[in-house]
Simulated scan of single mutants.
Amino acid sequence: MTSTRPTLLLVHGAWHRPAVWDRLRAELDVLGYQTRAVDLPTSGPDARGGMQDDAAAVRKEIAAIGGPVVVVAHSYGGIPVSEAATGLSEVEHLVYLAAYQLDRGESMFSFHGVPDPVETDVLVPITGDPRTAFYGDLSDADADTAISQLADQRLRACVDRVNEPAWRSIPSTYIVCTNDQAIPVPLQEKMADRATSVRRLESSHSPFLSRPVELAALLDEIVTARG
């Protein structure tokens, strides 16, 4: 086990913003962790760029920390993290929280067997019911608040492909959210097979909102056990 406690770098998913991590960050603070949350440029009121721009934002935050880092990626956030962390010696562990742990040449669309659209420089709307997909175990009031904070998302981020994924050279843990309605559990399990270790959490897609205490404790276990 590494003796120096790392900073946890938190990377949000599509349509979300860094503030979605606030509840979890408060619990990690209680446990004595320093945290930072990346602001991905493809998601927000002025959404721009593609997955490589998100990866650049992740690399910038890792460089700013200036010490050992464990990166925690949620949902889409796993894609730019896999792209960004390759070759960065300060990144000690990757945690994919119901996240896309993609391999070489894969994009979110290709992983789901969806063909690339002709036009990618557009915003992609949320399909279906975000209450059910993202926030199934939140109270109605908390879910309404979370939905009100969803942002625009660039389509290009979903079709850009990973080059050399960081998890091939950096140890990783996949956290399967067993009640997830956004990324089906069988698909999570398929990606979890790529990770060094696998943990499971009985939660919907957003345990940082619905189960922050339990998630913080699980992350502490993962950090403590990292090689």
Rank of each mutant, 00 (worst) to 15 (best):
Q153A: 13
D160G: 09
D39Q: 13
D142A: 14
T2S: 07
L94T: 02
S139F: 12
R104K: 07
V122M: 05
G105K: 00
S3L: 07
G77S: 08
M108P: 01
S3H: 08
V70T: 09
K190E: 15
L9T: 07
A64S: 14
V38K: 00
V20M: 11
S169E: 14
T173P: 03
A19E: 15
T173G: 05
I126G: 04
R36F: 14
L40D: 05
V58W: 06
R131Y: 15
T86G: 08
Y135L: 04
R48D: 12
A99T: 09
Y33I: 09
S43P: 02
V122C: 07
E221M: 02
I65C: 07
V213N: 03
V71H: 03
A85M: 03
R226W: 14
Y100F: 15
K190C: 12
R36V: 14
W21T: 11
A56Y: 07
L218W: 06
V176P: 01
Q34V: 15
P68H: 02
A47S: 10
P117Q: 07
Y76F: 14
R36G: 12
A73V: 06
R226A: 15
V72C: 09
C177F: 11
D142E: 15
L97S: 09
A225M: 00
P186M: 12
A56M: 03
S204C: 14
P186F: 14
V176F: 02
R226Q: 13
T196L: 01
R104A: 13
Q153Y: 12
R156H: 10
K60V: 15
V122I: 15
E106T: 12
R211N: 03
P207T: 06
W15S: 09
T224S: 03
T224D: 03
F208Y: 12
L201R: 02
H12T: 02
C158G: 07
T2F: 15
L150A: 09
I65K: 00
R200D: 10
I79W: 06
A157M: 06
V81Y: 05
W15Y: 15
L28S: 03
T7A: 07
L40N: 04
R5H: 04
A14I: 05
